[in-house]
Design a protein around this nucleic acid. Structure first.
Lengths: 143, 143
DNA sequence: ATGTAATAGTTGAAAATGTAACTAACAAGC
DNA sequence: GCTTGTTAGTTACATTTTCAACTATTACAT
């Protein structure tokens, strides 16, 4: 007789928590800016880190280059970012937000901040810190 | 100046952890049984809870009925489960695993158990319990 | 009993994703 | 110079997912 419980299985639990906790925020960037998940991720990376290349975003966010490529194309079409060829290595494109893109980022950043505090309401500061540390540790794992 | 950090944003962190922690297990059910995510989820619900209807699985796993419908069709085609019409309410189908399906479940359950202990290696029992409790709490949230 | 609404589950078309092949540019060896 | 290999990013095609419409059955109100 095994004690295995699907609903205690960490990958399952993590997925349930991730989906549930993404829903409301997803609604905002979707409704307000017609963005998809990969698009807000790219937007946030550029908003937070400034000018980056697609590869750099991919490495940080662990997104496949095709996802980035398409997200960048969409964001560019909406005038949220512009590309600039690197003069030394003409394969590379530097991406950065336009004022419009930055405004969207600032808006969504505020929403995210507020939402994050809602999610952590009821937890103590040290509980939150520990949760984040454990999630970071799990996220480190390489498939 | 804001202190917002994308990589500390809980929905982002949860998604990163969920994806990373699902990778290896996904590889197993995919390689070994050609299953997709929704298929192993349905398989596991039937394996763990016995006979269930599609709606019951959907409510528990928070999967949309079209995902269930297609996962069930695939599992049925591979002879992992069979359907039985409810005699009192002929809209309802009761699903349960075949011996083949149960064998696949038992096999994957063992893999999942082992994998779960790998993931939690390095954490104390109480840390693990707390992590699970926090994830359950976050998963509760309704969008 | 008859009309209306609700529920279980399926299906088709559109959108998104994954995988692999592709172009273009650079790098390194000879 | 030329060949071979690598990296940045795009594109094409197959698979999945999403969304809305659909069938069939039950429930409920009049």
């Amino acid at each position: 007789m095994s004690s295995f419980d699907l609903e205690q299985f960490l990958p399952y639990l993590l997925n349930q928590a991730a989906e549930a906790s993404s829903l409301e925020f997803q609604q905002v960037y979707k409704d307000r800016y017609g963005m998809l998940r990969n698009e807000w991720r790219v937007l946030f990376h550029l908003g937070q880190f400034g000018r980056m290349t697609a590869s750099e975003i991919g490495a940080r966010a662990r997104l496949h280059k095709t996802k980035i490529s398409r997200a960048v194309a969409k964001l560019e079409a909406r005038r949220f970012l512009i590309r600039k060829r690197d003069e030394d290595d003409r394969r590379v494109e530097h991406l950065h937000l336009t004022p419009t893109g930055r405004a969207a980022f600032e808006d969504l950043r505020r929403v995210a901040e507020r939402y994050d505090s809602e999610l952590t309401a009821g937890m103590t500061v040290s509980e939150i810190a520990q949760l984040r540390a454990q999630l970071e540790h799990l996220a480190q794992r390489r498939g």
